[in-house]
Computed example of a mutant assay.
Amino acid sequence: MTLIVDYDAGNIGSVANICKKAGGRTEISSDPDRIAAAGKLILPGVGHFGRAMARLNDSGIRAALDAAHDRGVPILGICLGMQLLTKHSEEGDADGLGWVDAVTRRFVLPEPLKIPHMGWNEVAFTRSDVLTQGMEDEARFYFVHSYYVEALSEAAVLGRTDYGGPFVSVVQQGNVWGFQCHPEKSHRYGLAVIRNFLDKVPAL
């Protein structure tokens, strides 16, 4: 059973649906006790970094997530959920969970590139990992975001994407993974990521 963290930040249903399509069993919960005791977690999200962190902090979910992380529970962050894994974001000038050695910055792009970055782009994986098994070297995923992750340590980088220059689109550090794209909208590649997380990463 994989627990999907509900902190009122969107795309919960679509993440649950792709997990079901991948053959996984999930539970959606905002209960800090359930989250802290989970064996595997998905942290989804769309929206504003600062407001999302305020909800996590005020609800008691932040403390539950920290407890699960400290126990070594596998955690997958998706879109905003990936950015929340970082130390700090320019969006809301807010501190994040700090589990990944990275920060979140707003895109500054030349014309004619638009913000948000929206659409299909390739991810070039920098090393092998359990979540990328069975994929081509440059798989395509669907993105919608105005902020990106800047790694402070190369060891945290699992994949990069080019949009006005390369940015970090996949991270992995310890028991934590993050995908900036939306796997739930990325067809077979997104399904492969979710299936690998559900099937090949052991729950604690």
Rank of each mutant, 00 (worst) to 15 (best):
P166Y: 04
R34W: 03
A52G: 04
P32S: 05
A64I: 02
G159D: 04
A38H: 03
M1E: 13
W120G: 06
L80C: 04
A52M: 05
F107Q: 00
G190W: 00
F125D: 10
A139K: 10
V123I: 15
F197K: 06
G77A: 08
S186C: 06
C79S: 00
A192W: 04
G190P: 11
I194Y: 01
S169H: 08
D93Q: 15
E150D: 09
A22I: 05
V170K: 01
C79L: 09
A124Q: 13
V157S: 02
H88S: 08
A151W: 14
A102Y: 07
R140S: 14
P166R: 08
D70C: 06
A68Y: 04
V103R: 10
V144H: 11
P166L: 08
D58H: 08
D31I: 09
T126D: 04
R25E: 15
S128V: 12
T132K: 03
A124V: 14
A52C: 07
N175H: 12
A192I: 13
P110C: 04
P183Q: 01
T2Q: 10
V15E: 05
L85Y: 02
A16D: 11
G13W: 07
D199I: 01
Q173A: 06
W99Q: 00
G134F: 08
N11P: 02
Y7W: 11
I18K: 00
R25C: 11
G39K: 13
K200Y: 05
S89I: 10
S29A: 12
E136W: 07
D162G: 03
A139R: 08
G10P: 09
I18T: 12
D66K: 11
M1I: 11
L41R: 12
V123R: 08
D66C: 14
L109H: 06
G174K: 10
S146Y: 08
G23C: 08
L80F: 10
C79M: 12
S89N: 07
E91K: 04
V193S: 07
I194E: 02
V103S: 03
V201G: 06
L76D: 02
L3I: 11
V201M: 03
W120M: 12
Y163P: 00
T2I: 11
K40S: 13
H187D: 14
L191E: 13
A155P: 02
F125Y: 14
A155F: 09
M53C: 00
L41V: 09
Y148L: 05
Y7E: 02
Y148M: 05
N17L: 14
